[in-house]
Each structure stands twice: as C-alpha cells, then as structure tokens.
Design a binder for these strands. Structure first.
Lengths: 337, 337
DNA sequence: CTGAAAGCGCTAACAT
DNA sequence: ATGTTAGCGCTTTCAG
C-alpha cells in the first residue's frame, strides 16, 4: 500500500504536486500531471480517505437516515440518492432507523456527529430541533425528504393536494360513496402523511358537496395485506358498500383490488380503486394512482447537498421544495355501475 | 466542536488518558475515567473518525456491495447486515452496483480501496479474482453472500438442494407434470442461481423416474409480472397443462397464482404453486415455499466480519458455510385433482 | 496508572 | 508551476 510520498518519489516531484495533480486542485503542468498519474497508477496508489479527511475536514461521505429498506418508496429514494452520490464521488453511509429509541440516539451521537459524514439526508424522519441544530452547528447540510423539518431544506409532495387529486378523480367519475384507507398512527409521526392525506380526501368530498362518512374511513398500515383487510372490512356490508376506494398507498390499493376479487366484485365495474405512489407493480395491477417519484426525490436530495457542499454553491431551491405528482389513470377506476 | 485536548484540559488529564478512557483500551483508574467521561459529555465531544482512522488504520466502516435495493431478498440482507453492524459500532457504506461496467471499476478503485472500509460484504456479486486478491492484499476481510467466491468466505444456500426439495414436495403430492419458472441469463452471472435451481429441479424429476420436459421450463425475471407472464404461457395449452409450477422466486410464484386465477384455475385444486424465499407476502398469498433467511444471512455476514476484524478472532466458520432452508407448506400446494 | 511525544498520510498556505 | 512545511486530531509506544 504505497503512500503519497512514494508516488512523489517515483514521479520525481513533491508530495504537494502529487496531491494537486491527483485532486485537480491547483495548477500543475500537463506533463507533470501525466507523470504523476502514471506513477500513481503503476504503484496502485489510492488516497487514504482518513488522511485526506483529516487534512481537509471533508469526508466525501453523506449519511442517509431512513426508516425502512424493504418498502418500495424508501428503497427507491435510497437508490436515487445512492447513484447520484456515487457519480459525484460521494459515498453513502446508511442508517436504518425507525422512530425514536436509544438506537437512534446512538446514531446521532456516535456516528453522524463523528465527523463521519459531510451531510445528511433524512428520509421521512422527523428530527428533533436539537438534532437539527447540532447538525447545523457543525455546518453539516441536511435535506429532508418526505416532509417539512424545522429549519431544514426539504423535499415533499403536498399530501393534501395529492389526496385531493385522487379523490377528485373519483368524484369526477361520478362516485359518491368513496372510502378511504388511510394510515394508522404508527405512521403518523412521520410528517403526518396519513393525517394530511385524510384532510385532502375530506376537503375534496366537501368541495363536491359530499359529507365524509367516518364509516368509510379505515386505518391501514401501508402494506398489501393491510389494504386487503381494510378493504374487506369496507366492503363487508353489501348494502352500504362504497363504489370507490382511495388508498393512501399503492400497496394497500393492490390489497384492496385482491379483496374485491375475492368478494366477487369486478374492478372497476363494481369498485374503483385508486392509490398513491405509482409503485413498480401498479402497471401490472392496472392501478390508477397518483404518481410520486421517489427515485427522483432521492436524486434531487443528493444533488442539493452536493451543491451545498460545493465551495461556491449555486443558488439552491426553496427551503420547502414542492415535488411533482401526477394522476396516472389506468384500468382500476371507472364510473360507478 | 471541541477536540480531545479540550476534553483533556477540562478533565485535567493528558490527551492520551482521554483517548484511553473513552476507547476503553488501556488502564485508566475508575475515577479518572469518570471525570473524562463527564468532561466529554459536557463538551459534547465526539471523536473525529478521520483522525482516529488515520491513527489506527481502522475505519469501523464496512462496505456492502449489492446489485439491487428494491428486491425483497436484497433489502432483507441489507437490513440484517446494517442492524448487526450498527449494534457493533460499525457503519455501513452502501454500493449499489449491478454487473460489471465502468461504475463498478470506479467503486473498486476509488472507494473500497481508499481505506474507506475495513471489510466488504459482497452480495450476489461475483468479484473477479483480481478484485478479490487486491482486497485480500490490503488485509480487508471479505464475505460473500449468495454464492461461492474464489478464496473468499461465503454464505449461500445450496440451490440445487433447495429446488430439489421444492420439486420433491410436488412429486410427493402426486404431481407428474411439474413446470419450472426459472431465471433468465441476465440473472445467471450471479452465481448461476438459475442454473443450479434448474439442475435441482431436473434431478428431482429424474430420481422420481420423470423425464424433464423442456416445454415445461420457462425463463423468468424474478418479478411478479414476469412470473405472471411465464405462468400464462405454461398454462395456455389446456390439454397439456402442468398440474404444478415450481417458481424460482416467491415473487414469480405470486404472479403464477394470479395468472392461474385469471385463467379461472383454482389454486391448489387445479394448480399447485411453490416458490423459493418465504417473502414477506408469502403468507398473505398462502404460498408454499422453501424459506431462506436473507436477514439472517446479512446478520451472519456482518458477524463474521466483525469477528475477523477482531484483533484476536475466534475460529470462523467454514469457508463455504451452507445456509439453512426449510420447506414451508401453506395452501398453494395439494395433490392434483 | 498517567504523561510526553512521535507519528498516521495527506492538504494548504506560503515561498520561490 | 512546484517545493517546503506546518498542521488536521487522534492513538500509541515509551518513560516514569
């Protein structure tokens, strides 16, 4: 494992020149640069990130704090962030943390703050203001994905608008009895997504002169089996059955579609179903949905941080950047029979 | 951001003592240790991992190279590895790389080797022997998950035995026309999982005196839509329809179940389906499957590395550790009608 | 049990 | 354009 001085010796220059030639900072003559490059390559030299990090104070490493790895939304965000960071020469250090707990504390104290990362992406995680301020005090840029964070640049869809859009689609098709599979409280601390989605749903109903019926709202857990169970419950009473279901995630919507089938109902003839996400399987299920783009969210988060880390950052987007979402109509919604 | 010397000053000791007190290495009197601890806490001191890494040559960071993030198997491995590493005080740096390509080269040259990680977990990725030997030359332990790697400790299920078990289950139920949805060549470079699974399937058939029928084998892509399409194809010819399908992944098996339903076939009365994985949704689908335990695989990989990184490592498992797998019978398999 | 001091390998002024 | 040199903040002999 050769060090920089060995490269310097072989190239016949000083270590400073090697550093400059290899990092691209500072002026080095093309010939020298080439000589250094070759020496480095021949020796199989790679810089020590610890040494370089110690000298510069920058680690070229971004921490990502994320509550789930095995859910489509989250793994998509992660994938987007990872590939962007990688192409910009940054590493990604992963912290898979749910809710609070001692583990979370540990991560903050002993990892994130350890000068291990230059910046943090917090996905659907509400940092306490003390966590945020410590990070900010260390000049570590943070960007949140999935909801507003106090004093932190965040990327999020307008959940109220998303569910209003979904609900209005059903209303415009002529539906009047529209059920909603929301999220349970377990998921609510993450930026109140379930609450906001419910608000949008009820607002859309009210605007259309419909009164939200509490019986048509059930809490789900964002999973397919959860959506299945919720839908079964909503569809149990054959007389008062809704003609449409708006599920707050595509996976729950898939469950609802399967539940309808098992009850002998045809989608969309007997029941319309709409979700939120545009999950990779939504096309397969023919699910109408409101697309959000988690991979782009991850990419964008990474790009913002990279820019902020730049010595001369370009102007950055608003502190609360609203994200795009689109209605994607497929075959799970239609006018009621 | 206080440094170690500030802690030393406040605690009234030398920096060496602070280091010893905080790291637990070397002898420090209980009183002193307590004083140092308090000083550190009061100042909000955390060690700089760059400085510590530079001084010790260890980063307490493990790299994980993994081809997919959004597939259940892989995210489960990752989750298992992450939580084990975290509880042992290691960070996890994520490299999401498929196949070969320049990106992969980059990661090896500029990241993994940058003294950034102490060890590497390679998930379902065939490292070239030059990659392996470079890593080994730098004394970086590697463990592979998902298949044998030349000269590297690996954890993997015996894919031949797995699919033999699955196929034998169907045979023992009385099935004779058993189809197989395998993997396509795109997935074959990862340790030949598809090939091995096919071998096991055919071996089981042969042992039972059945001749594998090439028409009953189709290549899949490990996804649910892929399994759906493959099953549709297998079931198209009503006269020569198989009575059972063995899919090489649970997600494809789910697709097969849905395809059967769409064709008006009842599972398991008209068609038995078995998969491999024990995916989190397998219970929901009532899928009989051969369980493997990716989260445990991730945990185990992490534990092995942590042990190997230990200055006085305990004896380690075999270079090729076979992993557990179990037949899990649910309601998707039954004797043929 | 504790302190002094020599690095770990690199970068960034500052010179030239 | 390149070299000299002083750290970056910690760990670890080596003394005591």
């Amino acid at each position: 494992m050769p060090g920089i001085d060995e490269v310097a010796r072989v190239a016949g220059v000083s270590t400073a020149t090697v550093s400059r030639a290899l990092s691209g900072a500072g002026h080095v003559s093309p010939t020298t640069r080439e000589r250094v490059r070759r020496a480095a390559r021949d020796l199989g030299y790679v810089v020590s990130s610890s040494a370089s990090g110690l000298a510069t104070g920058r680690t070229r490493n971004v921490g990502v704090v994320i509550p789930f790895l095995n859910r489509w939304f989250f793994s998509s965000v992660l994938e987007g962030a990872e590939s962007t960071l990688l192409t910009h020469g940054y590493d990604l250090t992963l912290y898979n943390l749910q809710g609070g707990g001692a583990e979370r504390q540990t991560v903050f104290e002993h990892f994130l703050l350890r000068k291990r990362v230059d910046a943090v992406i917090a996905v659907s995680l509400e940092l306490t203001s003390s966590e945020v301020s410590r990070l900010l005090a260390m000049k570590k840029p943070i960007v949140g994905v999935g909801g507003p964070l106090p004093g932190v640049r965040t990327l999020s869809v307008d959940d109220v608008a998303v569910s209003r859009l979904a609900t209005e689609h059903l209303i415009s098709l002529g539906h009047r009895r529209i059920a909603h599979i929301g999220g349970d409280d377990d998921h609510n601390h993450d930026f109140h997504v379930p609450t906001n989605r419910r608000v949008g749903y009820e607002a859309a109903l009210s605007s259309a002169g419909l009164t939200p019926d509490p019986k048509l709202h059930v809490a789900g857990d964002f999973t397919m089996p959860g959506g299945y169970a919720s839908a079964k419950q909503l569809l149990a009473d054959a007389d008062n059955r809704p003609t449409a279901i708006f599920a707050t995630s595509d996976e729950m919507a898939f469950g609802a579609i399967l539940a309808a089938r098992d009850l002998g109902l045809r989608v969309p003839r007997d029941l319309s179903v709409i979700g939120v996400d545009d999950h990779e399987l939504s096309e397969f299920f023919g699910l109408t949905t409101v697309a959000q783009y988690p991979d782009l969210q991850g990419r964008l988060a990474a790009e913002i941080l990279i820019e902020e880390l730049n010595p001369t950052p370009a102007p950055l987007p608003d502190i609360n950047t609203p994200l795009q979402f689109d209605l994607v109509v497929r075959s799970s919604t239609a006018p009621p029979a």
